[in-house]
Design a binder for these strands. Structure first.
Lengths: 338, 338
DNA sequence: GTGAAAGCGCTAACAA
DNA sequence: TTGTTAGCGCTTTCAC
């Protein structure tokens, strides 16, 4: 593989000159520029970004930590981050942590050793430890789709509270009075906020918040199934459920089908995220849409500003969620189901 | 950020010694090792992988090119590649090309400049140009879920021909005689093979291959919808369709629902890939499963062997697909639909 | 068991 | 406009 020395020698100039034409810095005569360019092409010269990273102290790489790339929501987030990063000249290294604190720590150390220019966190860990360690190391960090109340850090997220509020309000408007919610781990800020929004909506409607209707589960389909079964076995089961993500909602739909419970006639279901699967579900899922492309775009813009030292204060960008009405919600049945 | 010099000075040893304890090479007394380790910890020292990459000529990074991370199949592939790569000490840089030749070329040049140790291609481009350029540059390459007939290159894929054969045979066994196929771009090897397998199954069953029943479309839901509409408008429409991926199959289901055509009673549908959405579809999709975790594992093993120079010949690993019977297929109706 | 020194491929003063 | 040179932070002989 050709080096800058090879090019310089072949072109009969110094390496400084070659460097200048590569980076388009300094003043170079058109003639030499053309000449050097042609030599670079002829030798199939690829400037080493690792060497330049060593001197420039910049790798043009961003790390992205998320729970699971195989989860469509995070895959879509990753895609949006990737797109904006590429536009801005950055590569993205993705690490799936499975929400495992050890993996998270390991990957973070690794990314620091790789000298990534910044790290975007989409993992919903309970502790702020990782974030804090990055902040302490003065490495640019930004959170996407999560929030840290105690730490001052760039953040881009959807208004989860409002999302929960929208979901519950929609159900209230449809006349439901027994509305359940299935949340992921409440120590994850987004989940907590959604539940708070839900409570607010019920309260505003003069409905009592029944703790029996608030279920915590894992964040996958299985979690939704289990929680749904429990809810439907209640002596006074709900007529509507707000699931804190689409996967959970799908789980509910599956349980209903298995039990022969019609959705939305007997049970209304609202999801969250509006990933592709929401539109594919049967019935199509009414859900709260997160503006994923914008989230990715904003978080990259934030972190690149941070990297370039163009920012003074940390920012929190909160985007609005939207209610997408589809087929999984309807007016409350006259009688309670069963 | 502390450097090896800081650690050496603080520990009262030479940088060579520090380097040796970092890499666990050479012989170092237990005492100094402990001491140096403690200093490293105290200084929160993170060895620079960019500096070491410059000397070692190895970045421990693998590039992964795929069409779209937002497509669940590729997201799952990426996840499996990531997992195995991490196990082996490699990072993964992912680039979505949208099957755009310009992007592909751009990303490849970029990855070369980053000095990635190898590149895994999951993009189904028509030309072998990219692969050839990498081979020429003597950069380790491996293909996953695609094939290059003309080039000698490490490859891991599912037996697409057999997959198509399995799908069509299943439909034949159910008594279908008018079986359509919806394929992506036929210049993509996997797609072509699946169609060939389909043809083979029909021929073996003594059924004529009707070119009108072979449709080419884009590889997303919209493509499936459009192709489905065309097929169903035929004067002699099919009673079964084999879609070359799950997304296409979903498109078919949606069109059927819109038209009030019962699946599988009036039309049987088989997908390919067995991504999560296949199990979520209504009815759940009968599909051909690709062993994605194994694909990822194998391709990483192949490319790391190549990187370490442990291989003599290029290998082609072909894994078996499996038919997953679910609810979207049934016996052929007595009469042609409509 | 430890250290001195050359070199990896580039950038950025600073000179010329 | 072009070239010289000193790093960037490591690894790796080769002495000691």
């Amino acid at each position: 593989m050709a080096t800058i020395y090879d090019v310089a020698k072949e072109a009969g100039v110094s390496i400084a000159t070659v460097s200048k034409v590569i980076n388009e810095t300094g003043r170079i005569s058109d003639k030499t520029r053309q000449h050097v360019r042609s030599v670079m092409k002829r030798l199939d010269y690829q400037p080493s970004l690792v060497a330049s990273a060593l001197t420039k102290k910049r790798t043009n790489t961003i790390g992205l930590l998320l729970p699971d790339l195989g989860n469509l929501f995070f895959a879509e987030v990753a895609r949006s981050v990737e797109d904006r990063a590429h536009e801005k000249g950055y590569n993205v290294v993705i690490c799936s942590t499975d929400n495992d604190a050890d993996k998270e720590e390991k990957y973070l150390a690794w990314l620091r050793q790789k000298r990534v220019d910044g790290i975007i966190l989409a993992t919903g860990m309970q502790s702020d430890k990782s974030v804090k360690s990055l902040l302490d190391a003065r490495l640019p960090v930004a959170l996407i789709a999560r929030e840290s109340r105690r730490l001052s850090v760039d953040t881009v997220r959807v208004d989860d509270f409002r999302g929960g509020y929208l979901a519950a309000s929609h159900l209230v408007e449809l006349g439901h009075t027994r509305i359940a919610v299935i949340a992921e781990n409440l120590s994850v800020s987004s989940s907590r906020e959604r539940v708070e929004g839900y409570k607010k909506a019920l309260e505003e409607a003069g409905l009592a918040v029944d703790e029996a209707l608030i279920r915590i589960s894992s964040f996958d389909i299985e979690g939704g199934k289990e929680a749904a079964r429990q809810l439907l076995e209640l002596t006074e089961p709900p007529t509507a459920v707000f699931a804190c993500n689409d996967l959970l909602a799908i789980g509910i739909l599956q349980v209903c089908r298995a039990m022969g419970l019609a959705v939305p006639a007997r049970l209304s279901v609202v999801g969250f995220d509006n990933t592709l699967i929401a539109s594919l579900a049967e019935p199509p899922l009414t859900t709260i849409a997160q503006p994923i492309p914008e989230l990715g775009r904003e978080v990259v813009d934030l972190i690149t500003q941070e990297i370039h030292g163009e920012k003074q204060a940390k920012q929190r960008v909160v985007l609005d969620p939207r209610l997408i009405r589809r087929g999984s919600t309807a007016s409350a049945p006259e009688q309670a189901p069963r």
